[in-house]
Design a protein around this nucleic acid. Sequence first.
DNA 1: CTTTTTTGCTAAAACGATTTAGGAATCACG
DNA 2: CGTGATTCCTAAATCGTTTTAGCAAAAAAG
Lengths: 343, 343
Amino acid sequence: MKSKRPSIKDIASYINVSVTTVSFVLNGKGPEMRISEEVIQKILNYAKEINYTPNQLAQSLRTGKSNVIVFMVEDISNPFFARLARIIEVTAYKKGYKVIFCSNENDDRHTEELLQVFRDQKVTGYIIIPSAGAKKQIMALLEEDVPMILFDRYFPELETNYVVIDNGNATYKATRHLIGNGYRNIGFVTIASKQTQMMDRLKGYNKAVKEAKLQSRVLELPFVKASEGEGLMRHFFEANPELDAVFFATNYLTQRGLLVMREYLPGKLNEWGIMTFDDNEFFRIHTPSISAVAQPLEEIGNKLMEIMLELLKHNEKRTVHQVVLKSELKVRDSSKAKDANSI
Amino acid sequence: MKSKRPSIKDIASYINVSVTTVSFVLNGKGPEMRISEEVIQKILNYAKEINYTPNQLAQSLRTGKSNVIVFMVEDISNPFFARLARIIEVTAYKKGYKVIFCSNENDDRHTEELLQVFRDQKVTGYIIIPSAGAKKQIMALLEEDVPMILFDRYFPELETNYVVIDNGNATYKATRHLIGNGYRNIGFVTIASKQTQMMDRLKGYNKAVKEAKLQSRVLELPFVKASEGEGLMRHFFEANPELDAVFFATNYLTQRGLLVMREYLPGKLNEWGIMTFDDNEFFRIHTPSISAVAQPLEEIGNKLMEIMLELLKHNEKRTVHQVVLKSELKVRDSSKAKDANSI
DNA sequence: CTTTTTTGCTAAAACGATTTAGGAATCACG
DNA sequence: CGTGATTCCTAAATCGTTTTAGCAAAAAAG
């Protein structure tokens, strides 16, 4: 019952031609190789009839290409990445590629280990959020000349393909929105990081604040355990009693921050202006609903795959694809002028 | 520069033995095959020295095993699945397996298509949340006798491995908890589904309610678009003004439900008892914080991989692994007796 | 000193494709 | 008719492993 799946050989012997011929035909090289129309048709028909699909392992072994795309993010359980993964998945499968997801935990060694594994697998393409110090590994990949796209962040010194968003401008605008709604002492909570996306966000905030002649109040959390981060946030909030708004630079920080606020400064939850980077379904549900800079997930995912497919088709390294997408400010309750309420 | 990665052949010619010998040694069959200790050591040393790793494609082609584990869920962007994915990922990579994630959208055709793709790939093992009508496909896999574990739900009629949680009991207890805190008219919002996990939850609720001689008030949402679901929920809430608590049977429903409540019955948010199945970071952050039945994610993930590795080692189909894990009730503000507040 | 057994290894086929180099017929042309 | 071009196809190598079957030399047994 468990009949082996048909191979090229089966087709060959049935039609009474060589496997070479069959291979040519199935790869569309029939005409080019001057295989007669008659034979071509016979092969194609029979292949369809027995529902032939090539053994990808064999194909990969021979060609050195595996039809596997690696999608490496910081942490696949982060909703932002998970949703992106979903979008990537759909297009990839449609085009006959499989996707391997993995999380590098923003750790360079981990990144390196994973890449090592994949190198052995002749992975066809990489979509990567590089960890902070992964420049070396990315350069190595560049040298290997395998299709690769960075996203979320990139190394300005490297000529890589990338898809990012306008972090600076988005943060600038969101900060201005807060200012426009009457907030004057806006805290900015971010993590200490030299990575492009975080630097740009900080710059955007500072620009808006300076333009408005307001004071910049930044808390740069060292990359620490959640619990410690909460302590530092609390201290920051309490040490700056004049704060009337806070801007969290990533969704992760917002989660922490909201908890801290509810715990220690419950009154401020509805009083302060609150803004976050990276939207999330729960920010809509939260009371008050949280205003957010929303990354255009669909667009990012589609763009990534568009570029990837392009790279896979004709790997012309002449053109580097560098895309910056616009993000959208979702204005919700948390950033509206509170005058009405503050009776 | 781009030196080819070493193959078994390189080792063979360097040591001056046949590839057969090298293969035996590298597969630990040296002693068994009576390769001299001296040669074994030479091979192992050299292999380590040049940092040899086998070409998995070739290995897979030859052995018919691909070292790829498929992890199929409803929707990888659902936080519950994403977090589980993360846990699976860690163990799998540690053991030298790769994981391919995919989403079947709880759609049978989609499940079938995906499985078709994977069958061609000689996937080593499957961890699957089956879509409602995927019994046939699961049976087909069973026949192929490839390692497979279902989770979250299963088909009682099929003798498959599975890992699930005690849906019935957990819901029963959570409902009793609500009752114990003084709630008397508890609505149960679920989706119309004959799948084990949903049926069990409904049963658990009904049991608790009946035992307490309370009335069962169930809203079974047909599987519809979010927007329609919200309309139905709203109607349900308004048509049952005597409600004083609501139990959402999945995290997805809770999201919708909280939005509906905030929109149309804002007063009830702090008044009603609220309980949800599937915990989530945001339920902690929410005001009021939402009580939840938390699935033991770590345990589920670990158990799945434990069984999978077991199956991969000695595929003895004699024993079927069927595991039911306990879930934990996280009591938060939303289910505490509200008497104090209702001045 | 044969014969048998054990030791220590290897040749070659196989997995299922792709691709290079070329061969046999047929045809065209002078 | 001889030569060259064209048409249509194929043999065989290759990718990097695993595995079966077996061989030569040394050791043990008789």
